[in-house]
Amino acid sequence: MTADLSLLLPLAVLWPMLLASLSLLPGWGPRMVTLLPLGPLPGLAAAVITPRDTPVALPGILLDGGLELTGTGALFLGGAALLWFWAGVYAAFYLRHDGRPTSFALFWNLVLAGNLGVFIAADIISFYVFFALVSLLAYPLVIHDRKPASMRAGTVYLVLAVLGEVAILVGLMLASYGAGGASGSRRCAPP
């Protein structure tokens, strides 16, 4: 039973990615906006019923990365999933007459997957990939309406996102080096 429940962790990320993929199918894109509230539901379920501190290995994915739900991660995962649910309800109502529902649904679900994945990443590489999904793929959401103010905000957002990416990457590399990780090999250091 525990193994079955821990499968909710990959589903929390894969389900929004599937919804994003479905938005690319002909005829499905405009309809996907109405399904936005469904995206975070596996993440919400995982936060509530998945056993804590049970790692889920992902062999062959992200350098054999994994997912794990800690007590703190469950709190953040549940809170984020709940916020994304209500944001999806609002967006489905607000965007019902939008001219670009397909692109909104695509990027909304990809950013959702990254946001939920950050809270359940069990290793540095998984965390960084999920963080990159959140930070870089949110840009199309910022500029969605293509108004001049949105485009200016998008430029500022992109600059800050790239700076944040660089800071996170440098911090992770320093932490890995300090811990003697793969990127912190001390074989080349002078004696």
Rank of each mutant, 00 (worst) to 15 (best):
D4V: 14
L8Y: 06
L8E: 11
A12Y: 06
L14G: 12
P16E: 10
L18A: 13
L19G: 04
A20S: 13
S21T: 14
L22A: 06
L24V: 08
P26H: 01
P26M: 00
G29H: 10
L36P: 05
L41K: 09
L44I: 11
A47G: 07
R52N: 03
R52V: 01
D53S: 11
P59N: 11
I61F: 13
L63Q: 13
D64W: 11
D64P: 09
G65C: 06
G66Y: 03
L67W: 15
G71L: 01
T72A: 14
T72N: 11
G73N: 01
L75Q: 15
F76S: 09
F76H: 11
L77G: 04
G78R: 15
G79C: 10
A80Q: 09
F85V: 05
F85D: 02
A87I: 10
A87E: 11
V89D: 04
Y90A: 12
A92T: 08
Y94A: 07
Y94M: 04
R96I: 11
H97Y: 11
H97Q: 11
G99H: 15
R100L: 08
P101F: 12
S103A: 14
F104L: 04
F104R: 02
A105R: 03
L106W: 08
L106S: 01
L106E: 01
L106I: 05
W108Q: 08
W108P: 04
W108S: 05
N109W: 07
L110G: 03
V111H: 02
A113L: 05
A113S: 12
G114Y: 07
N115K: 12
L116C: 03
V118A: 00
I120F: 03
V129H: 03
L133H: 15
V134Q: 10
A138S: 12
L141S: 05
L141A: 03
H144E: 11
P148Q: 06
P148G: 02
M151D: 11
R152W: 06
T155N: 12
T155M: 13
Y157V: 09
V159T: 13
L160K: 14
V162Q: 12
V162L: 14
L163T: 07
A175V: 06
Y177V: 07
A179K: 09
A179D: 08
A179I: 02
A179Y: 10
G180Y: 05
A182Q: 07
A182T: 07
S183M: 15
G184E: 06
S185A: 11
P190W: 15
P191L: 14
